[in-house]
Design a protein around this nucleic acid. Structure first.
Lengths: 190, 190, 190, 190
DNA sequence: AGTTAATCGAGACGGTACGTCAAGTCTTAAC
DNA sequence: GTTAAGACTTGACGTACCGTCTCGATTAACT
């Protein structure tokens, strides 16, 4: 994620793609804990320095490798029906956090961010989760005319699922329809 | 965290205390990322093998070192007034997650659990957060006679704060009173 | 190899035997390099301290465990015929150094003695090799009435075989009869 | 002791020299028993991996560090006079085995080779002792026209001194002139 | 066309933590 | 006071990855 300019050999786009691809593969194959810069470079058939030149650490590579997928998986078509839309988003969120590779990457990054401020800053710079939710929350807020600020509304929508999944209890027992209704009720009276 | 039989030299209680103490100190001084088994042993003035004999990894030591504090910090006296009790718990939760050393440890462990199933199992074995919330949620559920199962009620109570803090936005802008009211409303109509 | 006396529980003879037996077995099974005090104690079903109480290091145990066998294997009946007796001894020596368990132990100890003066002192205290050779060399010296001192005669007898085996070239190509004759010739004219 | 291909950063000659120098120093300072790969690396100011990359164990480093010195110390100028040349070699041999640092290294390696077949193979690959003796023995064999094969002649020449020194009795009492004469007599009639 | 400069893959560099192993010592209860 | 058991501190083991560096080779843009 560094800009280059002027003369000299230009950045190899194929090397960049190979690295991102390698990270995607390795995350699935060996998991985040066993993911190393060395391993990424070797898998990508790329020099170690080449990876370090463009990304500062494995979190940055992983972030860039999964952010596009994450955005797609968390974007849901809106129908206009509040409960339906809220539920649709929650379903996408559950699927993302518990079954998607991009979600696995996201959970790993959130985890790392708890004890690495560089990673925290990285996630803060473009928070796909909050952004995706905002797109759903805005129309709903407009619809019910709530006084609740957008980010707090987002906390209410995402929080329960987020806590359940990250505290290790998986997706079983999540009733997204009930959560959608509870969210909308809180929105109205907030 | 292993039982010893009668024979042989008994486990040294002073060594155990020194290790737990060292972890406490080091977490504050160098942070979780720079916390190493080697560093813990040296700081505690204890053999490396002694640490490995009783704890499998740094997560286990840290967990044992902070679980007592966590329980204390998350236990709040109940008044019987629903909004007041819910708010009191949320205030304790915010303080724990954002300002307490035990909370820092807890966030680090939750983070590690996202990509280390041993740590996930460790946290699952005795989830201080869910346990502490259950003590508050139970009376409230009884009071309003809700149909919502206890663990889902806990998700609603903890989730919003948990998401906000772990996604890196700190405690500012959290209105625990409003959250308490929203939670109770969801409980009543859930 | 330490004396105990007076009151208290007497030294367990069965423990001593178990240790020596264990060393014998382990030398064959795992070799000298992998022979450890810990392993010896466990194999003997004996406390670690018990081993240390009576022998200072694994060289002492090994020495005591193999010295009797070594003496037996290196003692040959004398016929009175010089060439025959010298050859008989050299045959026994070759067999001892290359095929016997006690010889393996002896070579290991000689090796260790090159960089451990405790082991060197141990071997010096009762040198089975020189002692056994002396019994053969004495009558031969008397027979030919040589001026060569006994220990130098022993060097001439043992040296060539000793060098060949310890420098890693085994027993093949050793002509003990020729060596016996050459030794006697040196003795006569020394 | 590994060849490098054209690609990549070339092997650091200064690191190699530093390691060999460190081994030389440490052998004298702490002795072979206390010589460790860790200690060598630290003394050389070199990463541990760098040592392991080029040498498999401390024996290999020590061998490479002392083989040149050993060859020099064991090479004697030949005069053509048999007794004088044999004596000159034996004097060099005694000096090498009992007083030289390279000789200390050699004795330690011979010792280790008795219970470590890797070290045995290492010594076998280029046996400085036998090689150096061969250069002296060959002319002597030619001179007397013996039927004794070269390696057996070498055993006769080296053996007595080798046995005496390695069995811990030092150099005192070695009469190299007498040994030289005895050796030549054996050669003539062998 | 030649020069300059930044890239590329490769792989060695000094560091440092890993988790294991054995060393030799110490502390129990049992005898 | 010895025994077996087993925890203790110490410290080396050999491995892995860190992030940096140094090669030869390549690939543009600027002379």
């Amino acid at each position: 994620m560094v800009e280059a300019s002027g003369r000299g050999r230009p950045r190899s786009e194929s090397a960049r793609a190979a690295v991102l691809h390698a990270v995607d593969d390795l995350l699935v194959e060996v998991g985040y804990a066993a993911l190393t810069m060395k391993g990424i470079a070797e898998r990508a058939g790329v020099g170690r320095q080449t990876v370090y030149r463009w990304w500062a650490n494995k979190a940055e590579v992983l972030y860039e490798a999964s952010v596009i997928d994450a955005q797609q998986e968390l974007s849901v078509p809106l129908s206009g029906d509040p409960v339906r839309d809220a539920k649709a988003y929650l379903d996408a969120l559950v699927r993302f956090l518990t079954r998607s590779d991009a979600g696995t990457a996201y959970r790993a990054l959130i985890g790392e961010a708890q004890h690495d401020k560089d990673v925290a800053a990285l996630l803060d710079s473009r928070d796909v989760l909050a952004d995706s939710a905002a797109k759903v929350v805005e129309p709903l807020r407009d619809g019910v005319g709530t006084a609740l600020p957008p980010d707090r509304a987002t906390d209410l929508l995402i929080g329960p699922v987020f806590f359940r999944v990250l505290s290790g209890r998986g997706a079983d027992g999540i009733d997204t329809e009930a959560l959608a209704e509870q969210f909308l009720r809180a929105l109205r009276t907030g």
